[in-house]
Nucleic acid binder design. Structure first.
Lengths: 106, 106
DNA sequence: CTTATCGTTCGATAATCATCGAACAGTGGG
DNA sequence: CCCACTGTTCGATGATTATCGAACGATAAG
């Protein structure tokens, strides 16, 4: 069924703290989130740690992060654009993202 | 073997962010951490959510939190004193605990 | 000393999660 | 139009984690 398709994202109000924490409790997934701090990235450009990670595994990481409300995953041409949901997370859990990602943001 | 015994705790420098996040990614464990914000508590006085939770399950929660470095679990008479490791966590991951526990601390 | 209480450990079972190959579907280029 | 490319889904397997009864040790109280 799916190739480049709109995937479901939780609304801001539906984001659960425990799910966010769980999503970020894996080193690989945390690394992905960190990469998105400086702005959106195409999935192909997002290497996290292991460069030759199987596609399906990588896609699964994105699913966990997306379903938790940490990132947005949208069609972008033939690829996918990954965006950190900073505003939503900041509104829901002030200071959390900065603390986790080690960003002072000022 | 063990009844009231000294249990191993990670040192401040050994505390891993991903383990802390994982420990707090469970609603029950998160509730326990929140209960300790106002100060140490005897384990028996710490009801989290379910009051008639089996002892072994409760003990397991404490183990996860302790091994992650979130709480300290020390002998206290016949019971056990649970303490949130605020200073250690604040030193290692500034702002994290406040954000997670929803405390502004001021 | 004997007994009741507290909480950890052990062991077994169930549930959840991770990993990855294969198949598939949109997209854009030739 | 056809093909190469990207990334999701499915399905199977293995690894972690959760749950809880039972047994044990240590302490405090009587």
């Amino acid at each position: 069924m799916p190739g480049v398709v709109d995937l479901p994202h939780p609304e801001r109000s539906e984001i659960q703290l425990t799910e966010v924490l769980f999503a970020l409790s894996d080193p690989e997934r945390l690394a992905i989130a960190r990469q998105l701090v400086d702005g959106p990235l195409d999935m192909a450009a997002c290497h996290a740690t292991d460069p030759n990670l199987p596609k399906s595994t990588k896609s699964h990481f994105m699913k966990v992060l997306r379903e938790a409300g940490v990132i947005r995953n949208e069609p972008h041409g033939r690829q996918r654009l990954l965006t950190l949901r900073r505003d939503d997370l900041e509104a829901r859990f002030p200071g959390l993202l900065d603390a986790v990602l080690g960003v002072t943001t000022a």
